[in-house]
Amino acid sequence: MIRAVLAFLAALLAMPLTAQDAMPPAPYAYNQLDDPRLEAEATALMHTLRCLKCQSQSIADSDAPMAGDMRHQVRSRILAGESPDQIRSWLIARYGDYVSYNPTVSATTWPLFAIPVVLILIVGAVLARRLGKRRSDAADGEPT
């Protein structure tokens, strides 16, 4: 009885996975473009786009069927003459900044860019004061 229940549960788990692969993948999901220059452009872009199903992977790294469909979009659009930037904006218009791994300065992300600069300035100011002080101390201490 328990074995039957376990087998049923295992079958439930397996069903969506096997079924998702029942259809052949999109033409350009696993096939490269013929022109190596265009393929390099497409690959570089695919490494900076987030897979929506497996959110810590890029679409270049993921075997999720949806990532394959996104690779097909990237390759077929590159082939049709679109630039990587155009394709990235097309996806951002649909899924927001979240889909892109290429960071941009925006209302929410500016502190990420500003904080390191501020820290370096503070450290520079502190160092300048300390070193300046030590030098003047040394000058004071020198016998005249």
Partner: peptide
């Protein structure tokens, strides 16, 4: 078959 419309309307699953 290739999630074309799904991607075009911003659906992720």
């Amino acid at each position: 078959d290739i999630s074309e419309v799904q991607l075009a309307i911003g659906s992720s699953g």
